[in-house]
Write a protein that binds this DNA or RNA. Sequence first.
DNA 1: GAGGATAATAAAATCGTTTTTGCTTGGAGC
DNA 2: GCTCCAAGCAAAAACGATTTTATTATCCTC
Lengths: 345, 345
Amino acid sequence: MENDAKGRFGTRKPIRRVTIRDVAEAAAVSPSTVSNALTRRRYVAPEIIARVIEAVDRLGYKRDLAASSLRSAESLVIGVVIPELTNPFFANIVERISARALSSGRRVIVGTSMGDPETEAAEIAAIAAWRPAGVIAVPCDGAFAAADRLDADGIPFVIVDRVPDDEAGYDIVAVDNEGGARDAAERLFEDGYRHVAVLASSLSLRNIRERTEGAMTAFQTAGVEAVVLEAGFIVDEIAQIVGKLLVERPQLQAIFALNNRLTLGALKAILGRGLKPGIDVMVVSFDDYEWMRVFNPEVSAVQQPVKEIADAAFDRLMKRIAGDDSPAASIRLPVSLEWRGLPRS
Amino acid sequence: MENDAKGRFGTRKPIRRVTIRDVAEAAAVSPSTVSNALTRRRYVAPEIIARVIEAVDRLGYKRDLAASSLRSAESLVIGVVIPELTNPFFANIVERISARALSSGRRVIVGTSMGDPETEAAEIAAIAAWRPAGVIAVPCDGAFAAADRLDADGIPFVIVDRVPDDEAGYDIVAVDNEGGARDAAERLFEDGYRHVAVLASSLSLRNIRERTEGAMTAFQTAGVEAVVLEAGFIVDEIAQIVGKLLVERPQLQAIFALNNRLTLGALKAILGRGLKPGIDVMVVSFDDYEWMRVFNPEVSAVQQPVKEIADAAFDRLMKRIAGDDSPAASIRLPVSLEWRGLPRS
DNA sequence: GAGGATAATAAAATCGTTTTTGCTTGGAGC
DNA sequence: GCTCCAAGCAAAAACGATTTTATTATCCTC
């Protein structure tokens, strides 16, 4: 007898999957007993369980999760939708949620909207076709129109990081943007900075608006001369705008960049003019990345509690999946200021 | 009649999904005809198709992909296993593969090994339970023991980026590490650098070994005085090692860091000593990141063709899934040197 | 010892879809 | 006008699991 299934690419479809029926036959029990023996949903005699497990191991049986969840109507997938995977902040959140999901026997499927509401809606629709137990989403705009679709399908969801314009009725997990920005602003004042610029991407984003307001309120209260710049999303353009600012306002002592890209732009402008960040011009970043620590002194940053954000969102979603129908709530997590600057001498 | 299904969290399980049967009833045809009308697998009269589509739209029907692929035995999921999602290089690859998969009607599920072979094996096993059409993996070590599991299950797979110690019999997509490192080394020589250090993480990694060999061969041929340092994976430790190097070898003119973390460490050490990267000590990085461009001059880098890597892997996998059983092949893609340094004056 | 409750397993139904098989109709061929 | 074939749709089986229902054996109780 020749065995064609030997070579790696030797045959077309030689492999017939091991099903629960094969295991049942091998263990001389019925398929339902195998199921119960493995899932422990009903009592099965210990010696039969042992026989089943032996057969499973011997045959290399692995339960087909798709078939399993189809019948049991218990979805094992969690949908996660984010603007982009290449942003380590989002990647971190996905990684953490995946780990949590895995330890509860579920699996995450990820969709990226690339910052486009239409793509976002399409992704949500595509994910909905997988009948996820729930969805965790970082919306790309304040509308989050896809919410309706999820509601219509009865899929529970939690919104993360970006708070919708109308936040009523949604479960939301975000950070205390205003408080975090205020803390940083106050620290700048305490350390002697009196002429600062707040670097925003676009004030149409609620996160950025909250950060801007938190910072500006603190600056105004403290009597710090502060200006807000809307610099967009392209590093080179941001650098150009900051460059102009540095020329026009030579008295400027610090820049508070409200996201990591803005920080990149600010640093590029400062370094491009031969100045030293943290010495000639202080830079504080909202959101902390590894590369911010190569500078000397290191760039100070507002650190977002990524793990806590992901955990809070996951926990909330799990409760919803379990049937919790308490009123939707908005959770705001505190951020922490990683101050690495030297006091202004 | 009260309608309990109105509120967002008003009722427990009020939503009954729209199934193909509902559509069939609404369109006054059989379920099989609905299926054929939607998938176009068999001819259905145009007017019936129209009726079906109308019913689908009206009822908001979405085919259950799990059930669909269960019956048709055509898997719609692609497994992707990477060491970590927070590394933008891997995230990029995942994003690209996801996009390609999506446009072919499939979806990616991601597993992260966190650099641990056991976790990797567990992830592969877990993904296998979803019966993926294929798997694309970036192994975390040279053994890639999980390959056997995939082979046993008859799941085709492609290995990306990290080449296994024994590469025979595997489909592999990687970059030309040796050539890329050689190009960078030669350029350093051409620009006048004569005393350089090659910064490696661990020579037990094949990628790093190839890069080291490529660089050292070129340096030796050109008569450049070069030293190899194995500095590990922790930025602070790398910085410390480089710091010591800078003291011991004041004549050092350039550092060739073989991955992005090493680049961070090198920069940190250089900046920490008040030196200017690119001016006092040249830095060349293998792998290019956005933050490398904030410096002045920008950090030169060997850029990996992420899109091409992902595409090549995806294309190969699709062919395997389609039944191609040609011999396994190893594809090596060229990297490009982004030279941003100034010639040594 | 008969009736009935209980426990453990087997058999059958089911999840939502696709595929296979079967039926009906209409038209072509002779 | 009859047969045969193909087209077009319906009915039923199947995918691989779980849940529901049925069956048998055992154990109590009176």
